[in-house]
Amino acid sequence: MFEMRLHGRGGQGTVLAAGILAKALVAEGKHVVAVPQFGFERRGAPVAAYLRASETPMRAMTNIYTPDCVVCIDSSLPRVVDIFAGLRAGGMLVQASRLAPQDIAVPPTVATVAVCDAVGIAREVFGRPITNTVMLGAFARATGLVSLEALDRALEETSFRDGGLVQNRRALALGHARTVVHRIGQREAA
């Protein structure tokens, strides 16, 4: 079983991203449970979503407290939210950032850092910092858990209030192409 947590801000499509990822994972034969963190979704406010994937059906409809992976689709969020809370040892961070992965400060539980300049890509594609589909591309690249094709098909089944399908497909592809993955490995052993 693979457990992850997505972090973002209201308006960036964090919860929607969890739904799209769930669709893609199911299309590839996985079972999923995706649950958003509950609260008022307000533009700009921190939001989170949980997603669990497995080869076998799951029953528990609960939040996730010890994720294997954290995906943060906003570059400024780590300053205000403890995005690493409960992250398992050997875990992964997929972060929207212009920095190089080596320059991102992470706790010792993090073994892999993947970085994508999602805001830059989103501005290029949408003219606005809507980073959710970009970061799905980054996630696919970093984890290999889901194929770009499956995500692409999942986009087709999604209705977007902002941005069209063509743009989102491009965002996904660019996110996938422009993600840098850095494995810390050694440091973790310390």
Binding site: A18, A22, V26, V32, A34, F38, M61, T62
Partner: peptide
């Protein structure tokens, strides 16, 4: 159906 965990819990 339970609010939150079912109402917004996505599965296949």
């Amino acid at each position: 159906h339970d609010g939150n965990y079912l109402s917004n819990g996505i599965v296949r």
